[in-house]
Design a protein around this nucleic acid. Sequence first.
DNA 1: CCTGTGATTTACCGATCGGTCAATCGGCCG
DNA 2: CGGCCGATTGACCGATCGGTAAATCACAGG
Lengths: 208, 208
Amino acid sequence: MVARMARHETSEKILTAADALLAEAGYDGASVGRVAERAGVNKALVFYHFESKSKLVEAVLARYYDAHQAALKAAYANTDGDVRTRIHRVVDAYFSFMSEHRTYPRLVLGLIAANEEARVMVQDNLLALFEWTTEMLADITPNGGPLDARHFYSTFSGMVTGYFTYAPVIADAWGDDPLCPDALAVRLEHVHWMVDAVLDRLLGAEPS
Amino acid sequence: MVARMARHETSEKILTAADALLAEAGYDGASVGRVAERAGVNKALVFYHFESKSKLVEAVLARYYDAHQAALKAAYANTDGDVRTRIHRVVDAYFSFMSEHRTYPRLVLGLIAANEEARVMVQDNLLALFEWTTEMLADITPNGGPLDARHFYSTFSGMVTGYFTYAPVIADAWGDDPLCPDALAVRLEHVHWMVDAVLDRLLGAEPS
DNA sequence: CCTGTGATTTACCGATCGGTCAATCGGCCG
DNA sequence: CGGCCGATTGACCGATCGGTAAATCACAGG
């Protein structure tokens, strides 16, 4: 009577449940028991497929890491157009990745807010994106000071991820759902407007 | 032998310990036992002074709420200078409040990442700031669309709070401490530069 | 000096946490 | 059919969680 399924199938169900629960309730709130319950699976089975809770969380993160970086690099690898066009393309890729994986930014938020152990899991991916973005902007931003690439990375990634993570909190004040397609499109417009504002001031009246 | 102290004194020690622990470990990580331990106080005493854990957290938040809003309103109440000058003054107030209360943004982060109950505690304060900022920007930003005041609030508050909350994560990649006075001054410069970039594009070549 | 009162402590509760273990189940191969 | 092996289960562990009850303590007023 017990439904049998391939190893991969069961693991995937557990990963999906853990992903959703981590985004909803953070690291501590996503207990192994609740993850198993949502996956429709025995609690001990979670430890059989992933040996510990931290390993499970790392597995959830790993599903996003490669995809996240690949999406950005693919967008920047397209060399059509000038610098402005390419930056807009990367912003589009960043934003659409987040809207296609809405649990991801909240998952990261939950890990950063939790204990030191959970925090270091996020570091590797964050640092990789950080260094890569710095390299991308190296041509148009000075080294050091308030216009260093690291500040622009912090500012613009925060504009995107911050919107998704804070959305459930401000949803009440906002009349319509801030995560509905229309609202997301408007937010994306805002980010693009900000990019242009920055580039206008950075590049001056330089002919493009 | 047991040191006696005024009611206010003990409460304050517990509040301070809870504040620090919430910022470090989030809502679930800041257990009542650990809070009591850090405050050098018996665990049951926490329930005597604050009847439950959620009431304790609300008390911690309450210490910041009034001060946070008062700081911003005081800055904007100063009507010297044009719009640009006044906005820069509010940004300065926002930034300096965060750097003087560094546990505050991480405390809020920890509550947002935790369960629904903890999330609603943050809403009230966030919404008050949100509406007030909207009102402040009403004159120079259009209603609705990507240039609505709500988007600028989300963007600029994220630029400040996001920097403080993500700092411990990116500290390793950053050579020097991102929260040391020099680094903070540079970040503040960056935010001001962004404000000017936005105002240049919003107000056009308007003579000031 | 006695007593009342509020601050503090000790001991304890049921629930849940992450994790383990032996038993069991289901399909495949000989 | 019998045996093997990997997937799954239920029962259980010690630790810790938020919270409670009653005893104890320190001090002020009569």
